[in-house]
């Protein structure tokens, strides 16, 4: 039984903000299928009543005073930006011109 079809892989790629072109799609889908087939091994384990573990060594979430401590300056924060205006990150429009009409 196929666990993941090429159209599923494309949908997941869109959720992850990745583009799979038609040349990549078959191999990527096959790899994902093979991995999902392998992890089906877990289904033979009875986990009813077992609590999930998110962190191996549980710690209470530490808190601190809500005061600034040595954060980056705006100039430092912007220094790696591929595009910037002043101390703001610059990005393209959310909608392109046609869609915005």
């Amino acid at each position: 039984m196929s666990r993941i079809a090429p159209e599923d892989a494309k949908r997941v790629a869109e959720l992850a903000r990745l583009r799979l072109d038609d040349a990549e799609l078959p191999a990527m889908t096959a790899h994902l299928e093979r991995i999902l087939e392998y992890v089906d091994l877990l289904m033979e384990v009875d986990t009813r009543g077992v609590e999930p573990t998110a962190h191996a060594i549980p710690l209470a979430t530490p808190t601190r005073k809500d005061e600034p401590t040595g954060e980056l300056t705006p100039e430092q924060a912007i220094a790696n930006a591929p595009a910037a205006e002043g101390t703001a990150f610059s990005v393209p429009k959310v909608f392109d011109d046609e869609a915005a009409g």
Partner: peptide, 12 residues
Amino acid sequence: ANLKELYERTRS
């Protein structure tokens, strides 16, 4: 052309 394309193409 737009922000979504920026994300997708940059990451891909």
